[in-house]
Nucleic acid binder design. Structure first.
Length: 166
DNA sequence: GCCAACGTTGGC
DNA sequence: GCCAACGTTGGC
């Protein structure tokens, strides 16, 4: 079986009170910009590294049982985060403009629920997944790379075939 | 609510 | 360019 060498995998972190995986599922076309990231390291990934068709693990943070709750797909390469230009937006940044957008975002689309969600405890109990970036203490990146073997291990935990494979 | 860890800011 | 102060994140 040919191996896909171009697709990469990411974990995106969100507080469900702000934007949840079910919000994404209920969006028009189950698709939404992933906006409001205001961290330079994450910005660099969104602008330069994260590409259409990449796989996304959607993680809920700052809740009683933090967990990876579903799979999504990147459907649009990085482009300027225009919420930075809206004075009414929570993520308004007056330094950003068309010529120098500073902040970037990608569009993501719902693919599948992880049922049940893969909790932090599940990850901690798994020899491979316990080493994921999201498990590192003090980690505060809202988007971070995921290894293909980690992606596959997550799917295997829920007996899922890779939903991004044709 | 606590607190450790981190990123950002700003004085120098 | 250093670094202390500060604000935020996020697990617990």
């Amino acid at each position: 079986m040919p191996k896909n060498t171009s697709r990469r995998y990411w974990l995106m972190k969100s507080e469900p009170s702000c934007f949840s995986f079910s919000d994404l599922r209920q969006s028009q076309n189950q698709l939404s910009p992933w906006d409001g990231v205001r961290n330079y390291q994450a910005r660099n990934l969104l602008r330069d590294e994260i590409k259409k068709n990449d796989g996304v693990l959607f993680y809920h943070s700052s809740i009683k049982v933090p967990a990876i709750v579903g799979i999504a797909r990147v459907v649009q390469d990085g482009y300027p985060d225009y919420t930075a230009w809206d004075p009414k937006s929570e993520h308004f940044d007056p330094r950003s403009n068309l010529e120098n957008p500073i902040w970037y975002m990608v569009d993501v689309q719902f693919v599948a629920d992880l049922e049940p969600p893969v909790t932090r405890n599940d990850l901690q109990d798994h020899p491979l997944l316990a080493k994921m970036g999201v498990m590192k203490k003090g980690n505060r990146l809202s988007v971070m790379p995921v290894e293909e073997k980690e992606w596959q291990a997550i799917l295997a935990l829920r007996n899922m075939a890779d939903p991004l494979k044709p």
